[in-house]
Write a protein that binds this DNA or RNA. Sequence first.
DNA 1: TGAAATGTTATCGC
DNA 2: TGCGATAACATTTC
Length: 254
Amino acid sequence: MPELPDVEGFRRVLAAHTGEPITAVDVLDAGVLRGVTARALGDALRGRRFAEPRRHGKWLIAPAGGPVLLLHFGMTGSLTWHDPAEPRHRHDRVVWRLPDGELRYRDMRKLQGVHLDDAEQMLADLGPDALEVSRRDLAELLSHRRGRLKSALTDQTVIAGLGNFLADEICWHARVNPLRTASDLDAAELTALHRALRRVLRDSVEARRVPPRRDWLTGVRDDPGAACPRCGTPLCSRRVSGRRTVWCPVCQPS
DNA sequence: TGAAATGTTATCGC
DNA sequence: TGCGATAACATTTC
């Protein structure tokens, strides 16, 4: 799940529960703790209050009056608010208990995890957040890339926040082939790509995910014999930089 | 049973 | 130095 829109949704979950004291931190699976022990995490946060959280790319940054909590959700993570009476899920790994409920960090695969106080280190190599990238920024960022457009868009050191689904969706909306060399796009293509990025991100943030709409690529890409929602042509698919990439050979000619 | 899954990182080769 | 491919991490699903 978690690309920029999902993490922005988690940020809003946390933002709705700032200002209340953290009464306890339950570490149910220390396998998601990165560079911090369960004891140190609890000692640092107990009695503190979450302040307004930030997001950069796929990172959620949660200051807590001194200590800073950093969450990354990998491919399967989430952060949700629950009544304490609600049974915990098998994949709930860390729980922050507040007076009126609790925040649960759930993650099946445990590919990423929970950090404390190393924001500068974790965020140092990230490019600008995808929501903050202007058309001019995008042109500049792509102009230095010799590799494929798909690879550049999903490289967090170039632009932070875009993942496999978003990158394909944006290319499809822009009618640009994701296998193109990133620095080869002309002015019209860069304009189309930037407009697609804005539109796809806006709608996805509103939906708190990349919506699986049938009139979007994301809604059909896993269908057997998937066809382009715009023109009905069978979609093409291959691995690019280790990720499955889907595009329409008619709308997005090479 | 094997392959693939929305992420990131280290490593190897060109 | 940059980039592509690959494996690895952990777990589930088709």
